[in-house]
């Protein structure tokens, strides 16, 4: 490999007098001052956070919440895949067992009796969303979670469902049902 010798020109007497750099410095600082100072430009680039908030981009990985389907029923079927995949073990699911209500929608055998996410442990990795076969848990746009105690930061099923809202975009079982009905009337070659 050949080396390239960078030519370093000696500074001229004018440059060594510091005057060009003084003028340059003055120009740059004045330009910024004029743009930012009130009564002049009044356009600081600072975002004053609690009053002004940034637009959360699409696909942002915020806090994971449970979602309801288009009829307002719990989507989660208590399969516990997210609990097993969760790297920091932030999710804790209590299955319904024999005595509790099994599910609040058709097409589902079960729903969790209790679903807890410890938001202090959660690392917002999104593995729970990825692994969920029912599309019942999504990382949403919440990034500012605060509480006054550790207990308060453990979100239960009721709270998670309320925060998550209805997710009508993906309607897995509705389409499954349509597909099943279509199958029945489809002309099948019986040879």
């Amino acid at each position: 490999m050949s080396t390239k010798v960078v030519e370093r020109k000696p500074l001229s007497a004018w440059e060594r007098s510091y005057i060009p750099s003084i003028l340059g410095g003055l120009g740059v600082t004045w330009k910024h001052f004029k743009r930012t100072a009130p009564f002049l430009g009044n356009k600081p680039i600072t975002m004053e956070y609690p009053e002004q908030k940034w637009v959360v981009p699409e696909g942002y990985r915020g806090a994971p919440y449970l979602v309801k389907d288009q009829e307002g029923a719990t989507k989660c079927v208590s399969c516990q895949l997210c609990e097993f995949v969760c790297p920091p073990k932030a999710i804790r699911i209590t299955p319904p067992g024999p005595e509790a209500q099994q599910a609040d929608r058709a097409n589902a055998e079960k729903m969790p009796r209790e679903f807890e996410i410890n938001m202090l442990r959660c690392i917002f990795c999104g593995l729970c969303q990825e692994v969920c076969p029912e599309e019942a848990i999504f990382l949403q746009k919440d990034y500012s979670l605060t509480g006054t105690s550790r207990q308060e930061m453990v979100f239960n099923k009721e709270k998670l469902l309320k925060l998550g809202g209805t997710h009508a975009g993906i309607q897995k079982w509705k389409h499954k049902l349509e597909e099943a009905e279509a199958q029945e009337s489809f002309p099948v070659d019986t040879h």
Binding site: H32, F33, T36, A37, P44, T46, E48
Partner: peptide
């Protein structure tokens, strides 16, 4: 304040 304005910030407010 002047430092803040030169650096496009807001300063103590």
């Amino acid at each position: 304040k002047v430092s803040a304005w030169i650096q496009d910030r807001v300063g103590p407010n």
